[in-house]
Computed example of a mutant assay.
Amino acid sequence: MMKALVSNRSIGARILKLASGKSFGKEVLVKVHTVALNPTDFKHVNVLSPQNVIIGCDYAGEVVSVGKEAQGGRKVGDRLAGLVHGGMYHDRGSFAEYLKIDGDLAWKIPDGIHGEEAATARIPAKAPTILIYAASTSNAFPDIKLAVDCYSEGNSTGLCAKVLKAAAGGKVITLLDTGKPSTPGVEYESILVYNLFGESIVWLPPIGPKFPAIPSDRTSLARLHTKLPHLVSDFKPPPIRLIEGGFDGIIMGLGELRQGKVSGGKSVAKL
């Protein structure tokens, strides 16, 4: 058995004891040591998640079981980190003591990188012509031209559009659908990070939006994970705010994110 934080619809999230399971086929079972909190976590709890699915996306932990068909050359004892689509499945989400993942959809944490750092890892864009806007999340890096709006709420997309207008126009990439642009010379394009897992997605069935599987995105993510251990040595983690209290601390931390109380850093909890 394991503890996990699951959705409880509009009431919020609650801690349950669930079967911990084991790895099958292409899966690897990870003992989760550290998780990072994101706005998408409480948004799934508030609106998107079915009842009693496991919440949480970012994680770092240790392999305890490897399926016979698992890819990536994983071994028991390997330290892994990555991202999963928490808030959609009853057997998969990072806010749990154990997590099942596809073996090639995680990256091996090199020596010298702590779990708290690995759980927050983002590789910044290096091109000098890109603006990445993230408001109070930890995904902001100062550059200019193509704009990537990692916040995609309030007036964030409009602010990006104004920057591009001053630079003779361009495109704003958003993580949420923010409507049509009103700024001349600027276009918006919405992407969904969860397409990277190569699975179709349906939110709020039967009336919610549907997103088809994109196998090529999964291939790209698996390829990236083979390179991350070599790139992460150049990674400078955001300011980390360590949350005490395990699962109870995660519930508190999600509440603080929901209320806009976290700014300029990343909330991280140990399990």
Rank of each mutant, 00 (worst) to 15 (best):
M1S: 14
A4S: 06
L5E: 07
V6P: 04
S7R: 01
N8R: 05
N8K: 05
R9L: 14
G12L: 04
I15G: 04
A19N: 11
S20M: 04
G21K: 08
S23L: 00
E27H: 04
V30C: 02
K31V: 01
H33R: 10
H33G: 12
H33Q: 13
V35T: 12
P39Q: 08
D41Y: 01
F42V: 00
L48R: 08
P50H: 05
P50N: 10
A60F: 10
G67D: 12
K68G: 01
A70Y: 03
G73S: 04
R74G: 04
V76D: 06
D78T: 04
D78F: 03
V84T: 12
G86F: 03
Y89W: 07
H90D: 07
D91C: 00
S94E: 08
A96C: 02
E97Q: 12
E97K: 06
Y98T: 12
I101N: 07
W107Y: 14
K108Y: 01
D111L: 05
G112H: 03
H114R: 11
H114E: 15
E116P: 00
E117C: 00
I123W: 09
K126D: 10
P128N: 05
T129D: 15
L131E: 14
Y133K: 09
T137G: 15
S138H: 15
N139P: 00
A140Y: 12
A140M: 06
I144F: 14
K145L: 05
A147I: 03
A147T: 04
V148P: 08
V148Q: 11
C150L: 09
C160Y: 02
K162C: 02
V163F: 13
G170M: 05
L175I: 10
L176E: 14
D177H: 10
G179S: 03
K180V: 15
K180M: 10
T183M: 14
P184S: 10
G185C: 11
E187T: 15
S190Q: 15
G208N: 06
I214H: 06
I214M: 10
R218M: 01
A222F: 01
L224K: 07
T226P: 00
T226K: 11
H230P: 00
D234P: 00
F235W: 06
K236M: 07
P238S: 07
P239N: 12
I240D: 12
R241G: 06
I243R: 12
E244F: 00
G246Q: 09
G246D: 08
I251V: 13
M252K: 14
L254E: 13
L254N: 13
G255M: 02
R258H: 13
Q259I: 00
K261N: 10
S263W: 04
G264S: 02
K266A: 11
S267Q: 14
K270M: 06
L271P: 02
